[in-house]
Simulated scan of single mutants.
Amino acid sequence: MNIKLTLVLSDITGKSGMRIIEAILAGERDPKKLADLADIQCKTPKEEIAKALEGNWEEDLMFVLRQNYDTFKHFCVQLDRCDTELEKLMENYRTEVAEAGRPSYSPTKKRRDYHKRKRTVGFDVERKTYDMWGVNVFEIPGISHLTALELMSELGHDFTRKFPSSKQFCCWCNIAPNTKISGGKRISSHVPLRRNNVGLISRSIASSLANAKNQLGSFYRRIRSRAGGKAAVIATAHKVAKYSLPWLQTKHLITQKKSV
């Protein structure tokens, strides 16, 4: 329809885009009135938005637009239902694995520096992870709502009993080099070609830290300048799994209690 909304809005499913699309479907055709519906935080001038909304409004394409809009809304409702059902299952799981004496969840521990996504989980993932592990995994740079849920589904609450040391855990995650030494010389140290979901999640966390302004981000860039991007991802993922994941902190707390 000669509409170029994607050229003036970075995301047409955001507030500005959805308001404009809903007004078009309601019968509004004036480009200036449609441009005025853009959110106040939109950086594109309204004059440019109005120029991008000068269309021919063909009926068949309007029908296609409404079909796509209805489909988008349907999937949004389905995602909300999935979040509701997932929260119920996690609540049932939490009651089954509840431990006596675990520290209560404190909202003051919430991490505020992660980027807010347009589409987030419909419940407090941070609270659920704290109830499961007793530590706030969102203090780890690079952790998002989705990666936290993936770790919860892959690891469960009692995986600390299966790995006596961080070395064994990193080897199981396939983020530790398989160093082969013969005659006092290192022959190879390649990571095995083996798929592990927790290792893939750790690598995705490491990849998100490429430009982060923190210690892990500096570590990633230092390894990348010396050995390349792949080695930097593996090394940073290894550091995240070895020093940051909650199972080590839990073991540390247990050790402290025994020593006391």
Rank of each mutant, 00 (worst) to 15 (best):
E96G: 05
L151R: 14
R112W: 06
G229L: 04
A100L: 13
I181V: 14
N92F: 11
A35Q: 09
M18W: 06
I254C: 05
C76P: 06
R226I: 03
R195N: 06
M152Q: 06
V97H: 05
E126G: 09
Y69L: 05
K251L: 07
D39M: 01
K251V: 08
P177G: 07
L200D: 08
F138K: 15
G122S: 00
E139N: 07
F138Y: 15
T129L: 14
L89W: 13
D158E: 10
T71N: 11
S106M: 12
W172C: 12
I12E: 07
T6R: 07
G228M: 05
M18C: 08
F63Q: 04
W57Y: 03
P177N: 03
L149R: 13
Q67W: 05
E22M: 06
L5H: 15
C76G: 07
G184H: 02
M1C: 10
K110H: 04
G55T: 13
Q256I: 03
K213A: 14
E28W: 11
G27L: 00
L155D: 06
W172E: 10
C82K: 09
E28A: 09
Y93W: 13
M1V: 10
F123N: 11
V240P: 03
L9C: 12
V121H: 04
D113N: 11
A210R: 15
C173W: 00
G122Q: 03
S182R: 00
G134C: 12
E96T: 14
